[in-house]
Design a protein around this nucleic acid. Sequence first.
DNA 1: TAGTGGTCTAGACCACAAA
DNA 2: TTGTGGTCTAGACCACTAA
Lengths: 250, 250
Amino acid sequence: MLHQDILKDQIDRESKLPLYQQLYELLRTKIQNKEWGPGDMLPTETELLEQYQVSRATVRQALDELVNESLIYRERGRGTFVSHPTVDQTLVRIVSFTEDMRQRGFKPGTRVLFFGLVPATQELAEKLEVPLGEELVRLERLRLADGEPMSIEESHLIHSACPGVCDFDYAHNSLRETLEKACDIRLTRANQVIRAIPAPDHLVDTLSIQPDTALLFIERISYSQHNLPIEFLRLYHRGDRYVLYNGLRG
Amino acid sequence: MLHQDILKDQIDRESKLPLYQQLYELLRTKIQNKEWGPGDMLPTETELLEQYQVSRATVRQALDELVNESLIYRERGRGTFVSHPTVDQTLVRIVSFTEDMRQRGFKPGTRVLFFGLVPATQELAEKLEVPLGEELVRLERLRLADGEPMSIEESHLIHSACPGVCDFDYAHNSLRETLEKACDIRLTRANQVIRAIPAPDHLVDTLSIQPDTALLFIERISYSQHNLPIEFLRLYHRGDRYVLYNGLRG
DNA sequence: TAGTGGTCTAGACCACAAA
DNA sequence: TTGTGGTCTAGACCACTAA
């Protein structure tokens, strides 16, 4: 979908993109830009079909996608509303640490441990699908919850894909927001592996933990809207403070 | 949906259940009963609307649900097919250990460590929403992969909800299948908490691990089709052998 | 070329919530 | 009673796959 259409808040009948996907993008953008906040009611289906000049089925198809992603929920007889973020989104959506901590009732904090350029090792090169030695941005942050260490985040970005990222300070800026605003890169999907590991010796002091503590260790590859790998992330969560929630179907 | 309708493979126009949900149930049942196996093509949408005498939109709505649950996938111009199980379903669907191990390429095995009746402790009573002291079925199993210990499963069931379960041997029977066949109880959804913990001393020998190994510890409450809690499950997975995979959206 | 799923329309009636 | 979302119909045309 063209940037101008999002700005114009209009559906392009000439576009190759299906109408419902265009409408989905428009609504999704408004939600993520906080034009509508959690709990706010969206326009009714009738209002949407009039405003965007599509059929009700098309409106509902767009809304269905948003419901599936838990960005909105519907209540029969009342209306359609923006969802309140919940902790169990951590295993479904890419959630920033800051957002995650707020949902858990903690005050988030950050300390940058390392920020610089490094060459891709064998492992990183494979995960990010780049040649060995490719220039990567490495950002290592200690994450705090209510002032106490909670997690260590070890991020690796392909520098050539997001040349502007080094001009920012990630003690105060969100990496995801910077990627979006400065590099026009959106992380649209990711795959991750979750493990339980004993705390490695070199992290014990930084995380202020006993040597025998277990860590929830997550390795994640995130992909851009162009479906290219952008970031390889290692998360070391303190097992005694950080847990994951999720729901299952039968 | 009535049992007889599933047997008759028919949609009941008098039922209060929406047509698409009835169709969804019928198709889901056929898939789970392996009437159609992984990779098999479902009847085309046209065939389905003729067979069940509903409109195409209704057929698609039923299929959409199955697609959302990753039970089927569609290929434009080719047809609709039953999905192959994948390891990343472990965080989306309730998957039996046996199925899980097969997907991971292991040969599953089981040893029953304990099987009997116990009164509900404070914690169990709260999780299962029953009075303190309520009679519970406790089933403790060591799970093997390729003959080596992989996990310990500690299951607690409300005995009054599934009186027949004690008549079976769970070294060879699936708990879920028995619940369904002997008690007419389907586990339709569940909530779980995932943690990393150091291996407790009393599990070290049973799991054949070093004392400093970390475990992936999962606590799960499963609910029946009547939306009542049925099972409280504790899973102790060896962190050095068992990992979780999943995908995220942006 | 025939058959598949993908998209879209313009209706209709219903169940539920709130005033 | 009014307005909301929930369900359903009977069409239509398109893009893609495979023969």
